Computed example of a mutant assay.
Amino acid sequence: MLKYVDSDIVFQEIPDEVTLAVNISNCPFRCSGCHSMHLWKDIGEPLTVDVIDGFINKYGGAITCVCFMGGDAEPDGVAALSRYVHERYPGIKVGWYSGRSAVTNKDEYGSFDYIKLGPYIESLGGLDNRSTNQRLYRRGTDGRLIDMTSRFWKLP
């Protein structure tokens, strides 16, 4: 069962979106240097469609995207919530920050408008570092993933 620890409105996780970020616990990756080590534990409240409805109703039209931060222990559950958001709230985009290195087929990412892939490797830095192994993709109209990681980099 997916569990969430907290949520917040953020402006940097998905470029050009006002994002409701939902922090999901029980991360299986446990990356060295992780800034969210509390999410390694199986803690929090169940993340259900009723909880998602509550979040979206609370923020009304203020958000343009819901981003699931984690959930790698139950990717099918995250994908199901993504499909729910798209069906119930067609104007809201959905993202997933995953620590996975890759997706193997379209079914794994087809319900997401955005997906961040890659475990955090401290020596390579996060998305704002040009040497990062992590990548943020947006799904194009043809279903292909388009790398948009450079949007996080500062101009030289």
Rank of each mutant, 00 (worst) to 15 (best):
I115V: 14
K58M: 15
D76W: 11
D72F: 06
N26R: 10
I121H: 12
R100I: 14
S25Y: 03
A102P: 02
I56L: 09
N57G: 08
G125H: 11
T48I: 07
G126H: 13
I92V: 13
G71S: 05
M69H: 14
P46T: 12
S7Q: 08
V51W: 03
P75Y: 08
T64K: 06
Y59K: 02
T48V: 03
P46K: 14
K93I: 10
L136R: 00
N133H: 05
R151C: 10
A79H: 12
D128N: 10
I43Q: 07
V66E: 08
S111A: 11
C65E: 09
A73S: 14
D72E: 04
G91A: 02
V85Y: 06
N26M: 03
C34I: 01
G71A: 03
E13W: 06
C67M: 12
T104F: 15
E17L: 14
Y89Q: 10
R88M: 04
V78W: 07
D6Q: 15
D76A: 14
S101I: 07
Y89T: 14
S111F: 15
C67Y: 13
G140Q: 15
D107F: 07
H38L: 06
I14Y: 00
I14F: 01
D142G: 02
D72Y: 12
T149M: 13
A73G: 04
R135W: 08
S98W: 00
S101A: 11
G110V: 05
D107N: 11
Y114N: 01
L117G: 00
V22D: 01
V51D: 04
E87W: 06
V51K: 13
Q134K: 05
V51Q: 05
L124S: 04
C27Y: 12
R139Q: 15
D8M: 14
L127S: 00
I52P: 01
E13I: 07
C65N: 12
A80D: 07
H38Y: 15
L47T: 02
F29H: 12
P90V: 15
G91F: 03
A21C: 10
R135F: 05
T141P: 10
R144L: 11
G44F: 08
L124Q: 12
E74W: 07
G95T: 10
I14A: 01
D42R: 10
D147T: 09
R30S: 13
G125V: 13
V22W: 01
D50Y: 08
F11C: 04
G71H: 00
I63P: 00
E108A: 07
H35W: 15
D50M: 11
V22R: 00
V103L: 05
